[in-house]
Write a protein that binds this DNA or RNA. Structure first.
Length: 236
DNA sequence: GCGACAG
DNA sequence: ATCTTGTCGC
């Protein structure tokens, strides 16, 4: 469980190289599929935690039964941080280790839900889109912040939503209220799923808390796994 | 030029 | 993301 995922050969070494990769992959995104029907099947939450001191990143993938919200399977992976944090280039920091965690699952992941954005991105190719193109899986993103985008405050009730807008007025996602009187989450499409379906999945997975159960489980697991790795580093 | 900016 | 104590509230 302490195998460290290597950074792939040819991984972008600077911003310019990363921008070129986004430019090359962006038109492989599939946006004309409605995606898997909400409320059933499998959904997999992915998330990462960092230790910048040791240059480590731990990724977690947690598979849930979308109907019952029961955990079906969990996997983690440890890697080297593959890129600095640059707004708009988040994917290059997380993807190698997230892929490693996904590959360690025995079950098929179904639809993947990640922290961050897909279409809602400066070049319309955020983490969720990137992960989708690399895996071929349906992927959507649920973010906690609006990034650089603007939105009208949605209604106060669970299920109320409003458009998340880019500078040019394009709808790149939705601000979706998942609980009464709590801050909305920001949903966007990654790959092979529509915005309506992505919002429906988000609501179905956020019955009780603001964030979907998938991301809550993945977040808890990668933090736990990171702590274990840190303990092992101190006490060999 | 300056500030803002998913995680 | 991460650094960090207590605290208000269901």
């Amino acid at each position: 469980m302490e195998i460290i995922t290597g950074i792939p050969d040819g991984w972008p070494a600077d911003d310019a190289a990363a921008l070129a990769v986004q430019d090359e992959l962006r038109d492989r995104v599939v946006l004309d599929e409605p995606g898997p029907p909400p409320g059933g099947g499998l959904v997999t939450g992915v998330d990462v935690a960092y230790d910048d001191e040791r240059d480590l990143v731990v990724a977690a993938a947690v598979v849930l039964d979308a109907a019952t919200l029961e955990v079906v399977e969990e996997a983690t992976a440890v890697g080297r941080v593959a890129f600095p944090y640059v707004p708009g280039l988040l994917a290059f920091r997380e993807i190698p280790t997230v892929l490693a965690a996904l590959e360690r699952l025995d079950s098929g992941p179904g639809m993947v839900i990640c922290d961050g954005y897909g279409l809602a991105h400066p070049r319309r190719f955020g983490l969720a889109s990137h992960l989708g193109v690399l895996t071929g899986l349906p992927v959507m993103g649920v973010a906690k912040n609006p990034f650089t985008f603007t939105y009208e405050q949605p209604g106060p009730r669970r299920g109320d939503s409003s458009a998340l807008l880019a500078d040019d007025g394009t709808e790149v996602g939705r601000a979706l209220r998942t609980q009464d009187a709590t801050k909305p989450v920001f949903v966007s499409v990654g790959h092979r799923v529509g915005l309506e379906g992505a919002c429906a999945h988000t609501l179905a997975l956020a019955r009780r808390y603001r964030l979907p159960e998938s991301t809550r489980h993945a977040d808890a697991l990668c933090r736990r796994a990171l702590k274990e790795v840190q303990q092992a580093a101190v006490q060999p």
